[in-house]
């Protein structure tokens, strides 16, 4: 893969396998290959969208980069250092620069803490404020920047709507002034009219603070809207990665093509050709041999069954893993 000089984050050949244990002695009988050898980079100040269906490993990728899950193999180079080799203490320090926004605004906030305590917690952990007064001021400022009024400070999460809770979660992530934010399905639990508010907020914050996003979602329309580049994942692999314009105008991988055509467009006058894929996503426990998409692929060839396609560049920063392109 081409070396990007100004890449803030570079992920090389990252793997995350979950062992399945059974029997009296908890022997590992199989492995869930949630993330299986993926590589990508994110430049400073840009948004990379990571899109895929449930179980494709996109959330695990985010958790592994943050080291909430221990990687099985690979490299995660953040600001020039491989964070996978970090000690426990170094990891905690790293979390000042790398933050996460969660999907579920209900589950991700401690129900027994007030908003001030939630947003102020990272300030305490990293000793970013000297006293209570300073902490209060900082929390006020953070709440203001995500569009929450400061009269909310002493309330508990259950008194807020989903959209407001997600704002609290964003304020918490911003508290440490991170460089990279991993947004794991940040809007998919919200109502349609609230989704747009949160998406716009994320974009405004990016401009204001020069943030870099890894935006993980299953909704390609949302990902395409917010991202500069998009990576498409299928069953633990990235199958295509390119600019958001190219992903829509010139999708090269058959999976990307079918994913795009499957998305319903809110306009009954548009009558598009739909590629309806056969069958279901196979289990990541025993993924298909060769190209993992081959059992569902409309262009499957002999080579696809046996050989894993290489993730190669086709044109300007357009990476694809598909044998069909090399015919």
């Amino acid at each position: 893969m081409a070396v990007e000089s100004n890449a803030l984050l570079r992920v090389n050949n990252l793997k995350k396998y979950f062992p399945i244990k059974a029997g009296l002695f908890r022997k590992t009988v199989a492995q869930v290959k949630a993330v299986d050898d993926i590589s990508f980079y994110i430049n400073e100040g840009e948004t990379l969208g990571l899109v895929g269906e449930s179980g494709c490993g996109k959330s695990t990728t985010g958790a592994t980069i943050l080291q909430l899950e221990k990687a099985t193999a690979g490299e995660v180079i953040f600001q020039g250092k491989d964070v996978l080799s970090f000690s426990k203490k170094e990891i905690r320090g790293m979390r000042r620069d790398m933050q996460i926004i969660f999907q579920d605004p209900y589950a991700s906030l401690n129900p027994r803490m007030t908003v001030t305590e939630i947003v102020g917690e990272p300030l305490d952990i990293h000793k970013l404020v000297r006293n209570k007064q300073e902490k209060k001021e900082r929390v006020k400022q953070l709440l203001g920047s995500v569009g929450l009024s400061t009269e909310h400070m002493h309330r508990y999460p259950h008194e807020f709507s989903g959209g407001q809770r997600q704002r609290i979660g964003i304020a918490r992530a911003l508290a440490v002034e991170p460089k990279l934010i991993i947004a794991d399905e940040p809007v998919s639990a919200l109502d349609v009219s609230i989704q747009a508010q949160v998406i716009n907020l994320l974009q405004e914050l990016q401009q204001e603070y020069g943030l870099t996003y890894l935006f993980i979602a299953h909704d390609l329309s949302v990902v395409k809207h917010i991202s500069d580049r998009v990576a498409v994942m299928y069953l633990g692999k990235i199958v295509e990665m390119t600019s958001k314009v190219d992903i829509y105008d010139n999708p090269l991988h058959p999976y990307t093509q079918s994913l795009l055509s499957a998305i319903p467009i809110p306009d009954p006058t548009i009558n598009k050709e739909r590629i309806v894929l056969e069958g279901d996503v196979p289990s990541p426990i025993n993924p298909p041999s060769g190209c993992r998409f081959h059992p569902r692929c409309p262009h499957v060839m002999e080579i696809c069954r046996g050989e894993d396609p290489e993730f190669k560049v086709y044109g300007d920063n357009h990476y694809v893993a598909c044998h069909f392109l090399d015919r």
Binding site: G93, R95, D104, N110, P122, I125
Partner: peptide, 26 residues
Amino acid sequence: GSEFVRAAKSLGASDFRIILKHILPN
């Protein structure tokens, strides 16, 4: 296993802090 504990971990909270501030009250 709840997400707010993961959130605390991702903020850099120590095990002690997580047990005391997040798990015990719940």
